[in-house]
Write a protein that binds this DNA or RNA. Structure first.
Length: 387
DNA sequence: CCCCCCCC
């Protein structure tokens, strides 16, 4: 068995491993240890576990333990620990699948030796490759990147027969909230762990995650070879933490900042929306300033919508009439009314304009027709000044 | 020897 200094002398960076090497030594930090996963196909059956490693140059490599190897190395390759790995086999990656390294992957053989070391792999250089949310937002859909951000909230896991997912919200210096979807064991394991830490607003390094743009909205998704680093130790993470602390010291709540989509939305008078003066398209976003006077449909925040044109239908004894399509018995569904975001104006209480007073009247008129909540609003005088 | 890149 080699001593630590012998191992250190033989150590090479991942990017300098000779072709077909079987005796190179690497010193790596474990940044991910996946769940033990069963597999079965026409040729083989068993279990595997994916490990993601990074060396001192910040170069990552994926390794897979199969079957008995999982048990053999169960007390090794633990997350956040550093190891020497000797006599591993370096295979070419299958170009059909994503990996953390373009060319090589690590496989374990009967000769492979793994030794834990207290000489920890420094992550200082690892920092260089991490992008901010703003930089990531400029990349095309499907891009794979390393992202540095602040965790602000963790939603519950959503599970169905075939998949598990969980959304978390992250932000950056500019308080730009972005949704990251965690899949599979990222949703389950990393997600549950982040849920416990979320009040501390930890810095996250999300490695090899994917840009996922849906309906024009920028988002991030994990892929099977992603890694989640919590409070990593390198300059970009330290800078972001300092930034977060300044923002918090100014008593700004980083969990409720407007998104970029909100900031980019065209501001219009509320009347223009109510009077249907704006071109309607599914992806267009508009915003307006107004005072919330009351909430009409507190109990039933949805309406019956025509399945063809999505406009509101009139339902009388199960038969729905769509005035827009001009059909008497249309298929319809419940549809929620969603304000994507509501933010309080920072500077001052908004001035009530004559136009907005008219808007209030319009709402009251509409409410009178249908909802129970109309009864509530009609009991009160509107809280709007006349002049 | 694995391998799902998904969802609203």
């Amino acid at each position: 068995m080699a001593t630590e200094s012998e191992l250190a002398n033989q150590t090479v960076p991942i990017n300098k491993i000779p072709k077909n090497s079987v005796d190179s030594v690497i010193r790596v930090l474990v940044i991910r240890r996946g769940s033990i996963t069963p597999y079965k196909n026409s040729r083989h059956e068993g279990t595997y576990r994916t490990i993601i490693l990074v060396d001192e140059e910040g170069i990552k490599i994926q390794a897979t333990l199969f079957n008995k190897q999982i048990e053999t190395w169960k007390d090794f390759l633990k997350p956040n620990k550093s190891y020497y790995i000797a006599k591993g086999r370096y295979d070419r990656v299958n170009p059909n699948y994503s990996s953390v390294h373009k060319e090589v992957e690590l496989a374990f053989t009967d000769n492979t030796v793994i030794t834990e070391t207290d000489h920890e792999v420094s992550t200082q250089k690892f920092s260089d490759g991490f992008l901010s949310l703003d930089a990531a937002d400029n990349l095309p859909n499907g891009s794979i990147l390393d992202l540095i951000c602040v965790l602000v909230s963790v939603n519950p896991i959503i599970q169905n027969a075939t998949s598990k997912r969980r959304e978390i919200v992250v932000t950056n210096e500019l308080m730009e909230p972005t949704i990251v979807t965690l899949w599979g064991d990222f949703a389950e394991n990393d997600g549950a762990f982040l849920d416990k830490l979320k009040d501390d607003k930890p810095i996250l390094g999300l490695c090899d995650v994917r840009v996922s743009i849906y309906k024009g909205r920028f988002g991030i998704s994990t892929i099977p070879v992603s890694s989640v680093l919590i409070n990593p130790i390198f300059q970009k993470a330290i800078d972001l933490r300092a930034c977060r602390e300044i923002i918090e010291a100014n008593n700004k709540d980083i969990t409720v900042a407007p998104t970029k989509a909100m900031r980019r939305a065209i501001e219009v008078p509320l009347d223009h929306i109510l009077d249907g003066l704006l071109p309607e398209s599914q992806d267009s976003m508009y915003k307006f300033k107004a005072t919330i006077v009351d909430i009409l449909n507190k109990d039933e925040p949805w309406y019956f919508s025509c399945k063809t044109c999505r406009k509101k239908v009139r339902v009388i004894e199960e038969a729905a009439t769509c005035a827009n399509c001009n059909i008497d018995n249309v298929e319809y569904a419940m549809r929620s009314l969603i304000a994507e975001e509501i933010h309080q104006l920072e500077d001052q209480a908004p001035v009530i304009l004559e136009e907005e007073v008219r808007s209030v009247r319009k709402y009251r008129k509409r409410a009178k027709k249908t909802t129970n909540a109309a009864a509530q609003i009609n009991q009160k005088k509107p809280k709007v000044a006349k002049d």
